[in-house]
Structures are given as C-alpha cells and as structure tokens.
Write a protein that binds this DNA or RNA. Sequence first.
DNA 1: AATGAATGAGAGTTCATTCAT
DNA 2: CATGAATGAACTCTCATTCAT
Lengths: 206, 206, 206, 206
Amino acid sequence: MNKRLIPSMVKNEQLVERRRQQIIDGAVQLFTKKGFHKTTTREIAQKCKMSIGTMYEYIQTKEDVLFLVCEAIHEKMESRLRRTIKGHDNGFTLLKHSFRQLLKIMDEMRPLVLLIYQETKSLPKEQMKYVLEKELAITSLFEDVLEKGIQDGSIQLETHSISLMAHNIMVMGQMWTFRYWSLGRTYSLDEYIEQQLALLIRELKA
Amino acid sequence: MNKRLIPSMVKNEQLVERRRQQIIDGAVQLFTKKGFHKTTTREIAQKCKMSIGTMYEYIQTKEDVLFLVCEAIHEKMESRLRRTIKGHDNGFTLLKHSFRQLLKIMDEMRPLVLLIYQETKSLPKEQMKYVLEKELAITSLFEDVLEKGIQDGSIQLETHSISLMAHNIMVMGQMWTFRYWSLGRTYSLDEYIEQQLALLIRELKA
Amino acid sequence: MNKRLIPSMVKNEQLVERRRQQIIDGAVQLFTKKGFHKTTTREIAQKCKMSIGTMYEYIQTKEDVLFLVCEAIHEKMESRLRRTIKGHDNGFTLLKHSFRQLLKIMDEMRPLVLLIYQETKSLPKEQMKYVLEKELAITSLFEDVLEKGIQDGSIQLETHSISLMAHNIMVMGQMWTFRYWSLGRTYSLDEYIEQQLALLIRELKA
Amino acid sequence: MNKRLIPSMVKNEQLVERRRQQIIDGAVQLFTKKGFHKTTTREIAQKCKMSIGTMYEYIQTKEDVLFLVCEAIHEKMESRLRRTIKGHDNGFTLLKHSFRQLLKIMDEMRPLVLLIYQETKSLPKEQMKYVLEKELAITSLFEDVLEKGIQDGSIQLETHSISLMAHNIMVMGQMWTFRYWSLGRTYSLDEYIEQQLALLIRELKA
DNA sequence: AATGAATGAGAGTTCATTCAT
DNA sequence: CATGAATGAACTCTCATTCAT
C-alpha cells in the first residue's frame, strides 16, 4: 500500500510491515504529545527501540514517518467505521447509528484525529494528496448512507446536497476534536451527539 | 493589547505599533506561503525591510511573531464581521445576512484563516489560550444573532442549543477554508453559501 | 599477488580470484563515473550482483576495493604495453612504435587512467606504495627501449637522462587523459601523437 | 571575483575578503595534510578560529571552501609567474628564465599544486570549469613567451605546436609535484630543472 | 560460503537569538 | 534606536562495517 510512496532498503516485506508498525507506534505517541516539528528523528528511533540507522532502513525522510502515521490513523478510522455501518432497516436509522458511532470513534481517537488535522500540511505534495483522498473516501461512506435513506424514503434530501451533507457530518465529527477545548467544557460526548443529531434530523426530515 | 503578552525593548509606543504592523505584514506573506516552521526569522526580517536585530527589539521569540499574526487576523475578521452584523427587521433575516457575510469574509481571508487553523498549536500555552478566547468571542457574535431571532420569534431553537448552533455556523465558515481543496472543486462560493443556508433554515424553521 | 595485501575470509583461491574480478568489474564502472568517495559499498555490491556480506568476505575495507581496481588497471596497461614492445630493427623505430601504442592504450583506457591518477592518494600507505612501484615498473619499460636505442646508436641521449626521458614519455601519455578536457578540443588522438612524436624525435636525434 | 560563484550572507565586502582569507589559510593546511574528503567542516572552522556558524556565513557548502582554496592557489601561482616573466633580450632567454622560475614556484608550492591536481575533480561542475579555465590562462603565459621567441627568431617552433609546447612546459612543472615521490629520489630540484631545460632546448633549437 | 538487517558515530548544514558597535 | 556579524546547539541523514542466521 505504502510501498509505492515509501520505498524501504529492506527486502523482507513482513519485516518491513512489522518494523513500520513499530515506528508508527512510537511516532504517534511523540507526535500527539509534542507535534511533528518538535519531535526529532532520534527521539522517534529511541521510542521505537531501534537505532536511527535501523529506522532509516525503513523510511527515507522524517516526513515519511508522518505519512505512515497519517495513513495508519485513517486506515484505523475507516475500518472501524466500515465495520459499524452495516445492516439496519432503513437509511435513516442507519444514519443515526453511524453518526453516533462516528462520534464515538472520533472521541476515542481524538488526539490522533487532531494530529492529522494539524500536520497533514507538513507532508510533501504527493503524500498529502494521498492522505486527502483517504479523507474523501471516508466522507463518501456517509454519502452512501444518505443515498440509501433517500431511496428508501426515510431521508428527505435533494440529490445535489448529498455530498455537502456528508462533508457536514464528517466535520461535525472532527469538530469534536478540534473544538474540544471549548465544546468539551459545555457538553459531554453524549450530549454533543444527541444535540447534533437532533439538528441533523430536522434537516433530513423537513 | 498585546503589550502584556509581548514586551518590547522600545519605549515609544507608537513606534512599537508601527513596527509590529510591519512585522505582521511581512510575516503573513511568508507564513501563508511556506508555513510557520519553514519560515526563518531572517526571512521575516528581510520581508519587513528591517534588520533581525531591529526585529528582535519588538519581539522576544519567533513564536511572538506568530502570535502577532494570529491576533491581527482575528482582529480583522472580528471587526469586519461586527460591521456587518447590524440592523435588520428580525433575527432571522439578520442571521441569513450575517452568514452570507461570514462566508464572504472567510473566502477573502481564506489563506489567513487556514494559517490560524494550522499554526495556532505552535503557540506557547498562554498565547494559545488568548487566541482561542478570541475565537470564542467571534463565535459568540452568532449566539447574539440567534438569541435575537429566538426572542422576536423569527427563529425556532431551544435555548440550550444556541451555543452549539453558533459553533456550527463558525465551523461551516471555516470548513470553506480547510476543505476548500474538495468543496472548491464541487461548489462555487455562492452555491456553497446558498446550500448551507438552505440546510440551516430547515434547522431553524422546523 | 594481492593475497599478501588483502586477506580474504574465503579459502578457495579460485573462488577468491573469480569473486574479486566481479568486484573489480562492478567497482570500476562506479568509480569512473562517480569517483571513489561518492560511491558507496552498497552500490558496489549491487553492481557486482552480490550481497554486501559476501563482498566483505573477499575484502576488508572499502579502500581494498580501490586497491584491487588500481592494481587491475595497471596490470592491464602493463600487459598490453609489454605485448606491443617487441621486435623491430632498432631502438628508435621501436620507440616510435611503442610511443604510438602507449597513447592508443592511454586513449582507450582514458577513464581508467584518470581514475588511478585521481584516487591513488586515497589508498592506505602500503597499498599506495605498491601502486606507485607498479607505475615505476611500467615507466622502466621505456627506459629499456631508450637504452636499446642508445646502444644500437639509433638514439642520442646521455645516460643520466634515460630515466627522466622515460618519465617524460609516460607523462606525455598520461597528459592525454588528465588534460583531455583541453587537448581533446584542439587535437585528435593522431594529431596529438604525431606532434608529440615530432618533438620527441628532435630531442633524441639532436 | 568569487562573489558570483560563492555568495555570502555577510554584506561588508572587506570583512568577507578577510574572513575568507582566514578560511583559506586554515583549510589549506588541513587539505594538504589529510585531503579534502577526510577533513571535516568542523576541523576547518576550528583551524580558522571561528565557529562553524560563522564560517557558514561566508560559504554555502564545504565544496565552496575547496573552490576558494583552489582559486587562491592558482591566483598566487599566476601572480608569481607573471611577475617573473618580464624583460629579457629575446624570447629564448626569457623562456629559459621563466621555465626555471616556474619550477622554483612549483617546488615551493608543491603541496598546494598537488592539492589542486588531486581535488579539482571534487568541485561542482561550474566551479571546476572556472578552475580549469584558470589553468589554461596560466598555460597561455608560456604560449606568449614562445610566440615572442618565434618572432624574434630565437626559438624554432612551428606555429601549430605552440599550444602543445606550452602544455608540455606546464606539465613538466606539475610533474615535479605529482611524480616527486620518484623524481625527488633521483634528482635535486636544480638537476631536474637543468636536465629538462637541456631537452627543451634541443626541441626549440633544432 | 552467502546473506542482508542492524548499528551508531559522525557528517554537513541550519537558524533562533545575542550583543558589541 | 538600529544594525548585522557571531554563535553553537541541534537538526536530519549517511554509510562502512559487523554478525547472527
């Protein structure tokens, strides 16, 4: 998956996989705590319990580590979301369910989501593009849910607004992470979920 | 205003004001283009047409420049918004008007808003707090509008949702900057405004 | 030959011979293109189609590779030269013939000769000494030719100048490689040969 | 002169001149002793008695130091040579005189000349070109002497051989440095000069 | 005999900040 | 009040060599 974008000196693919996971695990801790720029490559290597030399066998630049981290976070988020967006009688109940799930995931992954949100811009062009595409892919999961609801008549929404509404939903999720400093003072997670959901329902049941 | 947070070596207050404006103007150009971390103090000084030595008479650290810039951006945004949120028969029409204005301002200041959203985290604690407070202050402008609409009966919204709705409105504005890479492909500014407004109205006229 | 100077971990002498030839062939390509210092051991191993581990079974340090290469080049040059310095009626015609041959060889081996000329200094003391001795041995081939010419009366040269003249001849050959950037613009190989020969003859027929 | 090729961060030109001289003086000692590649920037800075940071205010890369050094050596050689190639009754006596001078200079500057001959190849393209041009300029000093001798009848040489002969003369000079390991064992400087001169005269008085 | 992952000292370079002028 | 040369700690990345498999 990331082989195209990040070549490794090491040939054994399983080893590469394993070591990169090690790197990701170490880097995530540091990046979420201190940010990408204030973390040094030496610190990362130390945290992963490998020598710098070894680390650089599996990446080419410090930005590569950031990319691996962003990719892993997105991957995790997408898979958790996909697992949860399933079944249900109609689109509307599915939407309610998946919105709640989205927010639970966002809450659990709060520092990670924040990380992506704040550091994506530090990626080189091509890798940034890749990350943004992933973001869109996740957003489109909600397009599917909305579409289903429109078709089975449980959701009222004009077709040309589907994409925008999906964006809005994702952003409502991200908001909880990047405005937590304020929202978290006023609302508990459940309060936030239910109030946003109430507003959402007004839009979709008008 | 920033005197408390950023002391200067220079006594003459007017001069300080003038020089800092110079610094802000230069730094904004560089920060929006290359980001905070990839901009050097030397470059900033050069862009402001002063020596580094002189620049450091008016600030203490590189982060101070970032703070000055963030503050200036917020100041500008708030004053432009305040100027526009005035008059009107009732809260509802005022809201529509001010939402449209918000987005026009966001669009014009797109790179600046993005800058705040990406680099605020690089500020030292205290200065960050100050910037976030300003963010809240701007958000509360919309609380006032909503409140007015509720009181004159032109807006239907439960009191405990006012704050959240104000946040949502601000985020809808910011979305246009930080998701422009995707939204900008699908919608023109006016399309974006009118579609978001349509959804908003459903929530407030239910 | 190089066994004394460069021990190998491997016992089978024929294998050592074969592998070292492989190393030389790969290294020569890289050294002539990028120079010794800008070539990495990894690159060399890759070019030779063996692992670094294997390569290090046959050498001890990177400098050893350089030594092997220098030695091989000298060996090749000497054997080609020896093959050609034979027969002929008298010393003078032999000299003319062998000078022409020297330059043809130098021209064909231009990048290799340049390599020796530029990188010998990077060898460790003892190996450098060995290489320089080889250089002298080749030079002395021309001493023999001159001596023959003096004895048969076809060349006029004082005995104490024989060594110097041999050096001059060798340098005339090397010049063609290390001043090729200038000489090559002005003269073709044949022109260069004939003009230098004309000057040489004036010295030896005075 | 080198301002075009090596920009400095420092504006005061005299200071640049002075500091660069300092850098050259320090670097020459190290380069002649250990070679360019085995000398570190830190060692250079230390030898020049400035901090690395300061040194890098006056250069951009380590190669720049090498260039400054090569340029300085050539400059010195040229000026010393120019000063000496003057006056005299006719071209022939001038040639003899200047050949002797050339060799005295080469001998005094032996390590420096060797340095140029071994490290020029490590320069980046453009700077290498510049250095080689300088080399040609020095060579052409001898073309002028030969031309003078031909015109006043004191030297017999075909016009189309002037350039080649000038090259030969330069190379005879350089030989003394890069074959000193052998020539120095057999000849004293004066012996070398006089014997080479004797051969030269045979060519030019035929 | 062959492999290639692991190592870490050390390389070149940058840049926020200071302070003598 | 203005200047800009000086500083050096700290950064990212490289690569010759080793050694367990």
